[in-house]
Design a protein around this nucleic acid. Sequence first.
DNA 1: AACGTTCCCGTGAACGCTCACGGACGGAAG
DNA 2: CTTCCGTCCGTGAGCGTTCACGGGAACGTT
Lengths: 332, 332
Amino acid sequence: MPSGTESRRVTIHDVARAAGVSRQTVSRALNDKGEIDDSTKQRVLEAARTLGYRPSRFARGLVRQDTISVGLVIPDLLNPFFTEVAAAALEAARARGWHVLVYDTADSAQEELGTLQVIASQVDAVVGYFSRTESEIEQWTRGLPVVLIDRAEDAERFSSIRIDGRDGVRAAVSHLVQAGHRRIGMLDHAARAEPSVRHAWFADALTACGLDDGPVCRAEQSVEGGERALEHLLTQHPDVTAVFAFNDVIAIGALRAARRTGRLVPRDLAVIGFDGVTLGTLVEPPLSSVALDIRRLGVLAVEQAARLLTGDSPLAPDDLVARAELRLRAST
Amino acid sequence: MPSGTESRRVTIHDVARAAGVSRQTVSRALNDKGEIDDSTKQRVLEAARTLGYRPSRFARGLVRQDTISVGLVIPDLLNPFFTEVAAAALEAARARGWHVLVYDTADSAQEELGTLQVIASQVDAVVGYFSRTESEIEQWTRGLPVVLIDRAEDAERFSSIRIDGRDGVRAAVSHLVQAGHRRIGMLDHAARAEPSVRHAWFADALTACGLDDGPVCRAEQSVEGGERALEHLLTQHPDVTAVFAFNDVIAIGALRAARRTGRLVPRDLAVIGFDGVTLGTLVEPPLSSVALDIRRLGVLAVEQAARLLTGDSPLAPDDLVARAELRLRAST
DNA sequence: AACGTTCCCGTGAACGCTCACGGACGGAAG
DNA sequence: CTTCCGTCCGTGAGCGTTCACGGGAACGTT
């Protein structure tokens, strides 16, 4: 039966004593080093087994600093876009033999701050999405490599994986116009106070096609948010015949709302999203999207983190770009 | 420019020297302990800043063993079911202040072994999905708490979160029978050699309803796998009017294959899945499913890991069960 | 003047492990 | 018999941090 006392950890010394050897010999046995007789090795292993010995990762890490771990910060793992980014980052990290600590900040600035406060003491580099200001981030991560993804404003002090959807969005709008649409709305995201960069691309594309500004409605970052936003948009602007959404999740919400309100997509309403998530191919109708190579985001971020960590030739900002291009499906 | 020499890490001692104080005073300044003059505190902080000092997590962890980290092992993060499990586990761990190392084994026994070999030296507990034998798992995780999820066979040596879908599957089959279906097929999963437990439930339910065994086809764990499997099943058994799938991902594949081959769901073919993933509500038609509380899986696993870790009153196997129940939507 | 308090700060030890070194032992070569 | 080498094993040191303790200075109290 387990003793009531808070039992001390079993250390390498205990194993050594039990096996009648020195610490070093135990270390040799456990790490498959040479310079040890096979019989004693077995004896040591046996002693370790019966004692339930498990080496301390801290002590080991202190003396040989080989294992690298990176923190991956994601706003919402249930959002299929971030899931794909995370999966790609995980794979890239695994290929390097890195360990990945994942933090889901639940789309909350508060949780993000909490993550920032603890992450620096747990990892060798940080990769992911942050909404806080650069100085806040720097305050908590001072000294360790940080790679931001899809930063709203240009990142000055950190490396950042930029998303360039200007051409893609223009192609999307242009395609809608050629299909006869004249009144195109947008479902922007609602998280930030000011309109998003994607909205700017959208507005530019409209003027490039000789159209006036389209009506905009803010949407929560969820399917339900997209549904609500589309209904709101269509009641306020019934003349809208096509919508561009901040991302595919919102666009899928729009798809559902359209169906629910008896509109046929794309006949009564054309819908086009952004990101190009796999999920877009599963809904009905399949979603047109200004798609980007999502995997590239995660891979690039890890790649850059690696370069920052080793110090050799980090990628230039121009190389840290994922360009989006129009991918047409049945929703337009 | 960075010096060519492999520069030594800047330690607490360097900061102490730069600030003209002792290590302990530096420690006090950094950890917001008392017993330090505010002016010297600022001076130390300034010195640390300019030197780019960052405390070693290993040294810190060695002396104060407070931070706990758990390894979460997932076969495929892109599978929406595992995504939901992971999200729940992450949240539960965060609530405890734990850190989570995520490992995606890519549905590969080889990667799983690789994960097993490194995970033990990085975490305080392991939670997740494993396909290897218990002795293999134990060999690499000896001594640290392990909580398995949805283990195919009953786990003897480890805690395991069990999924009980017997009643749910029976309800599903019974519902299909009452709707007039007499020839019900199943799309089982293809990973293991023998039929799955869910197939056993399915077979039991059939006999309980007085039906003969239904035709079975193995499917890969993906939407595409589900598509292929349904086509194969229907060509071999054209009389099938309803299918039960091993999980929702495969069921969604069946939905798509049905649509593609001109069958209307549920009129020409009824489809019912397992798991109850959120994705099932987004496809068309929405997917009926033998649904379980997916979040509960992740939460329970973390909860049990916590109990095993602290040693107080681990949950009994009977409490580590997630029961599935029929959730009817438009696909039946 | 002697004493107790409070406020700061420093010193040794400890955490658990690996690395570099040295030493004992036995057998082969001179 | 000496010398040398290879095998096996132990000892001290060090990784970077915090904890427990002690001590000096400044201040007030009797």
